[in-house]
Structures are given as C-alpha cells and as structure tokens.
Design a protein around this nucleic acid. Sequence first.
DNA 1: GCGTAGATGCAACAGAGTTGCATCTAGAAA
DNA 2: TTTCTAGATGCAACTCTGTTGCATCTACGC
Lengths: 140, 140
Amino acid sequence: MRFSVQAEEALRRGGRRITPMRRALLLLLEEKKPLGPRELHRELRRRGVLVDRVSVYRNVATLLSLGLVHRVLGSTAVRPCAQRSPSCHHAIVCTSCGAAREFRSGAVEKALAALRVRAPGFVVQGHLLELRGLCQRCTA
Amino acid sequence: MRFSVQAEEALRRGGRRITPMRRALLLLLEEKKPLGPRELHRELRRRGVLVDRVSVYRNVATLLSLGLVHRVLGSTAVRPCAQRSPSCHHAIVCTSCGAAREFRSGAVEKALAALRVRAPGFVVQGHLLELRGLCQRCTA
DNA sequence: GCGTAGATGCAACAGAGTTGCATCTAGAAA
DNA sequence: TTTCTAGATGCAACTCTGTTGCATCTACGC
C-alpha cells in the first residue's frame, strides 16, 4: 500500500487530523529521498504550500512518534517506514544522493539476536544498523 | 596501550602538537563516558582547564578526522577508539548512563560482509552499527 | 451547522556550531 | 639557548537549527 495512504490511516487511528499541509508533507516524503525539517519546509514552499517552519517541525515529530518515519542515522532527515516492524530500522543510504531503502537480512538479524546473550556486562535492548553505499544511479 | 598515550603518538605522526589542553581532553575522554563538545568544555573548565569552547570544537574535529574517536550514533558525543580498525565502529551504549564499550562479533561481521553482494541496486561501502542496552551498574 | 480538540501561525528565545582574525606557543632547527 | 614558524588558541560576531508560549483557526465528530 502507498505510504501516504497508510500514513493517513494511522494518523486517523491516532486521533490526528488530515490537513492540507500533512497531505503535502506525506506526498513529499513518499516521492523524494529522506529530507530534514528545514529541507521539507523549503520544498513545501517551493510547491506553493506556504506553511510555517514550526509546523513542519511539529509534524515531523508527530510522524516520528507514530513510527511512520525513521531518522537517517547521523542526520535529522526522515524516511518513510512502510513496514512498522523492528526490521524496518535496517536501511541502506546512498552516500552520494541520499536515497534510502529498507532491507531485510535473516543472517544479520540472527547474528544480532545472538549478541543479546553475549555482550559482556551489558543487557542488550536493541540496536541501530544502517548500511552506506552507492545507489544504482550514482554508481553509473 | 592507554588511549591517551596512543592518541598523542598519532597526533605527533600527523604533524599536530601536544598542548596542555589536548592532554587534558584526551585524559577526560579516556576516563569518562562519551561526551559532546559542550560537555567536554564544561568538564574541562570544572577541572580548571580554562579553554575556549571553540577550541574544544576544533580539537574534537581533529580527533575525529584522525579516527582517534568516533561519534555515538544520534548524538555529538565521541568515544575513544583504541583499535583503529573497521570493527571499532561496533559499540554498545548504555541507554541509562551513556557508558560505551566497543565489541567484536565474528558472526555479525560475516553477516554484514555477506550483505555486500546482496543489497539489490546498491553497492555497499560500509555500515553503522551500535547496540543499545544497560551496563552492569545500571542493571543493578 | 456547532463545538471542540487538535493544528497552525507568529514572535521571541535558546542552543549548537562556525568563521575570521589577531595572538600565542610547541617543537624543530640553528 | 635562541630563533623561527606552522599550528593552536582566544575572542567576537554570526549562522543555523530547533523550541516554547500563546492566540487564532479548522478538521471532523456530533
């Protein structure tokens, strides 16, 4: 299912409203690479959606709190998350253009799960994992 | 070998100088949990090392560029890196007190290496991995 | 259509990090 | 030891990002 449609449903379920600016924001996230609040604000204005910066910040925070988007590690950019499962935290990000895609790997998940009982002196609660690479377009 | 000693050598090799503030900074990084530039600045002043904030920023940047410290994911805090190998990027961070420790796992490294040839449409260059958990002291 | 909880706009603020430039000094060389 | 200089530091001003408080507006359930 399309991200924006799914996200609108989740917003409704969470007692949130569907406003013109939220629609525009969701469409933007769906079609572009991960963007941070400032970039989202710029892009929205470029498209004629004259919203306040603060509102963009608040909406990004809302989407994050509902788990509809995840941050790209080491930046404020967010990427849509379709699956809403633990594995959706695993993504690969293009170091050249910033494009991102989620991936799954049974082997990695298994190896990480095994660590939970083996990290000396620590009780493992979770992990952050992100691959870095070049997307097809940037490789060519 | 102690981190601060090793770091001083690396600085010398890189044509950098050993100043009183660098010594204090390295000792601080060695003995404490990961701290960001602002916290490092506060702590140094508390210890009577009256340096400028800007100098702390510049020194943290220097240490990062030499690979002597790594950032904790999702923050500006840096932790000393003893090994200077790719695996030193793997750390576990206590979500309660912020303490960090590097770890190695053959299984994880193998699984990640296998991904390099399997990520569809991407040429994998590297990865970011960090475990989150509770350290021994915070568990008790 | 109403009423209201939730969303937005606006203004002011807080905090992090950067830049430019003058001054100082660690460390090498004489 | 003294001298020299690239590299380090201090200081001031600035930019950029993100936050808070409050008044106004509106999506949407009734």
